[in-house]
């Protein structure tokens, strides 16, 4: 077991990990931050996406040990400082971009990364970017719509609620 120290959502944290401990496991089991979800074991589903040093990664693909000193942002760190929903989170609620909520943390983290690199993505760009995030509930319609709305685009012409 080895000690690792990192910054998670702006706070210094540390814990002991095995060499094989994944970042997702360290967050969930080590820090009891259960907002990050694990939906598969082949790095396909994207429920575990977090930001590490400003980049979106699947936290099931990173070893906690490798991230000593890293700055990590998880879904628990995405709300506004006053606790209100951020623009992206609010858009997901406004446009019903979630149902069971299990894929949602990863979706929000991926959406934030997308809008950082592409502030006004087209529908096709949103869909292509979400290739690594699987949702079984929404059929993606309202997720894509929510992300486009969060980017400030008018989504009123997109069908239905």
């Amino acid at each position: 077991m080895t000690q690792v120290t990192m910054t998670v959502n702006g706070k210094a944290v540390s814990g002991t990990v095995e060499g094989r401990t994944l970042l997702a496991e360290f967050l969930r089991e080590g820090l009891r931050m259960t907002g990050t979800h694990i939906g598969c074991d082949t790095s396909q589903c994207g429920a575990c996406v977090v930001h590490v040093n400003g980049n979106a990664i699947k936290s099931c693909t990173a070893l906690a040990l490798d991230l000593d000193g890293a700055s990590v942002v998880t879904i628990e760190g995405m709300a506004n400082p006053d606790g209100s929903l951020s623009v992206i989170q609010q858009a997901f609620q406004d446009h019903h971009g979630l149902q069971c909520g299990f894929c949602t943390p990863g979706m929000v983290m991926s959406a934030a990364a997308l809008l950082k690199e592409n502030p006004k993505p087209t529908e096709a760009e949103v869909r292509a970017y979400l290739e690594g995030n699987i949702c079984r509930c929404t059929g993606y319609h309202n997720i894509v719509k929510a992300i486009m709305a969060a980017s400030g685009q008018d989504v009123s012409a997109i069908a239905a609620e």
């Binding site: 990050t36 628990e76 997901f92 609620q93 406004d94 019903h96 979630l98 909520g101 299990f102």
Partner: peptide, 17 residues
């Protein structure tokens, strides 16, 4: 709007795991 969304969007859902 769905009231349950707030906990899911902020990582405060409580799933069995």
């Amino acid at each position: 709007k769905r009231r349950e969304d707030v906990r899911f969007l902020t990582g405060r859902g409580r799933y069995t795991d």
